[in-house]
Every structure is written in C-alpha cells, then in structure tokens.
Write a protein that binds this DNA or RNA. Structure first.
Lengths: 106, 106
DNA sequence: TTTTTATATTGCAATATTACGATATAGATT
DNA sequence: AATCTATATCGTAATATTGCAATATAAAAA
C-alpha cells in the first residue's frame, strides 16, 4: 500500500503525525533552526545556507508551509520566509507538555 | 532518489529528524498515547486497541523501538512494551524548549 | 506432545518521499 | 525590450513507507 489510513485515527493523532512528518527531515530541521536563529524573514539566504539544490529546498519549504510551520511573504521578486508562531507554539505544546511518566515495570 | 542525504547535516539535525519521523504516523502517535495513558508495560493490548492488522502494528512497534522511544521486555511468551523515559524526555526537551521568537516582519 | 497464544518476519503491491535537471514565472535592473 | 535574479513547477529516477496475508517462532496450556 504505502497509504496511511488517517480515517482510522483521531483528528489530534493525525495532526501530531502531520506536524512531526514536516519536521522529519534534516534539511527541514536545518531550515527551522536557521529561521529561529536569525529570528526574521529570510529570502534567498536559505538556498545558500543549505547544501541542496534550489528545487529541492523549494520543495522542503513548500512542505513546511503546507504544515503551517513557516509562512512566506512576497517581497518584490523575492519571497521571505519566517516561522509561523502560532503553529510553532502548538508544536512546542504538543511535544513538550506531556506528563512525567513513572514506569512501574521494565 | 528517495534517499535522504544525512551526511550533509549535523548529528543533531539528523537526530531530531529521526525522532520526528518515528512519531510521524498516527498509529505510532496512538501507541505512544496509549502507553502514556496506562503508564505501564503493555503486551497484546496494543493489537486490540488499534484498528490495524497485527503485522502492521508489529512493524510500527519495531520502528518506535529502533528510534528508542519505547522498549520491550520479554514476559513469558508475550512481550511488554513501555515508554523509554530518557529518550522520551529528550524529545520533550528538543521540541518543547525553544526560545520564544519575536518576528519583526510578516 | 499437540494445540493455543503472542509476536515477529517475509514477501509483495500500492503509494509516498527525496533529489535534481530542465524549464517556467515574475519582478528588478539595465 | 532584453537581461538578470529569485523562486516555483514539471518530470523522472531511486528509494522508502505502509499495509497485510501467509508463515515462522517460541513459550504456555491442555
């Protein structure tokens, strides 16, 4: 198959999986880290920053944008990208704020 | 291609991506949620809990185990799974503890 | 020892992802 | 207008993922 049965899971489970998938590639992690570091909108810089071809980076940016993690603003003939705060905060909440477990076995 | 160029990125970027990938499927999110809920080692229950065939779940469990997120203990003829605390805490740290951004543009 | 129970492995089909060259688009510059 | 610059899209090859039936394995129960 190769197709995920999203209809069998809750909306929340699918959302967490979708957001995790967007982060599940080192190039996209690098893009997020870079945007967090410069803490501003960045245009062509990303292509020069990463060791991948321009179409490949464009594709990764699209996936991050589709997941809502970043957003792009048209600035002349360039497009400036930055972190989309609300979604990014949501991710921090989803993965960061889980109850401390106390395994009784294992 | 279809192959990720891990050698082009830092160890940390690859690790974050690897952990995110392990979470990037609703079935695996459901397994993690269930293990956190019952807060103990669970054996066959997972197969009955999820709407997927046994081999499929076995495969997802294997991926979570490979990522270090869960661990399995042999208990007679059954195997009991539970959250692997150190790695799970690491995930919470990685995704949860990021500086608050203050976008100047967009 | 045969059978049952719990889980893993194999093999395979359907689909998704990754990467990039070639090309398109669109605003800026000359 | 012609060219340059920045980015997106298309097409395609290589590889990875998802899902499951069939089968294997191994301990428990009968």
């Amino acid at each position: 198959m190769g197709i995920t049965k999203t209809d069998l899971f809750t909306e929340n489970q699918n959302e967490v999986a979708m957001l995790a998938k967007a982060i599940a590639h080192p190039a996209r992690v690098a893009i997020i880290e870079y945007l967090l570091k410069v803490n501003a909108c960045i245009c062509n810089d990303i292509v020069n920053e990463l060791p991948l071809a321009q179409p490949t980076i464009s594709q990764h940016l699209k996936e991050l944008k589709n997941a809502g993690i970043i957003k792009g603003n048209i600035e002349g003939n360039a497009i400036c990208y930055c972190i989309n705060e609300p979604v990014f905060s949501k991710i921090q909440g989803l993965f960061g704020a889980v109850l401390p477990t106390n395994n009784k076995c294992c």
